[in-house]
Amino acid sequence: MLRYIVKRLLLFIPIILGISFIVLILIDITPGDPVAIMAGWDAKPEVIAQVAADLRLDRPIVVRYFEFVTNALKGDFGKSFRNKRPVMTDILSRFPYTALLAFVSVVLSVLIGLPLGIYAATHQYSWKDNTAIFATLILVSMPSFWLALLLVRVFSLGLGITPVSGIQKWTSWILPMFSLAVGYAASIARQARSNMLQVIREDYIVTARAKGQSERVVIYRHALKNACIPLIMTIGSLFGMALGGALVTEQIFSIPGLGQYTITGLINVDYPAIQGSVLFMSIISCSIILLIDIAFAFIDPRIRSQYIRKKVKAIQVGGEGA
């Protein structure tokens, strides 16, 4: 098992290095002169000189890359061009909002989506399944920012239940979390349903029935466990998606999180801020996927046993079992 974890960690490092490289060269793919863009159209010559010195675009990319990575390792993403504060400070103060938003949304989406998908699958060929599946299709086809605006119109402006924007109290979180979760819940439901339908047709399900097992245990033990294993991966990647989704959601609800910071950075062409937040969010998202992958290997015996060294198993008769 340790071998597997080490192997995954070793794969993780080059990916992060690669992402750092992409993040670094973002500035090089900008059309036009980045220095002029960044300094602003009416910048004084000394400002331009200062920006140029900060960017050090004249130096070879390898050198810049090396410097960027060593600084990043020290937790230094440079200073924002806009507010002159260290980017890392801003990221760290803003990240808790985004983390809370993304985490709760994903958890919420699993809580809604998984039971819905299983319910639909176990009621196949009935109107219940058709309704559920059509509802989830509509929800995944909806732009999430539009749904957010509709919710604001109804619950904040219309009924006055929740604040329109900003984070003042816990009710402020309801709409952002819900509007972000709805689409994910629908896609989890769709995947859970199709996994479940596939698994229900497997031979080992027939075997379980032929043993005399009750339909409830067949569905909720034999089928559900098998159907959930691939879902774990999806849920892992949803965390990454939720970090991306937070960009717009935070913008709509004026949540002072990392997403809003990124968008502000993008609009102001604030390179250190962009580079810092993209790299930071990517590392978070990759780490979550890594953790999920490792958890996955613990859960699925087919993967686990590839990495467990065959040890002589002496099981006592009647010992702690299965």
């Binding site: 031979d203 027939v206 079992g321 299965a322």
Partner: peptide, 16 residues
């Protein structure tokens, strides 16, 4: 394909 891939064989026999 007749055996549940994620349960031990012992568990599956004991279940019956």
């Amino acid at each position: 394909t007749a055996l549940n891939p994620i349960e031990t064989v012992g568990w599956q026999i004991a279940e019956a």
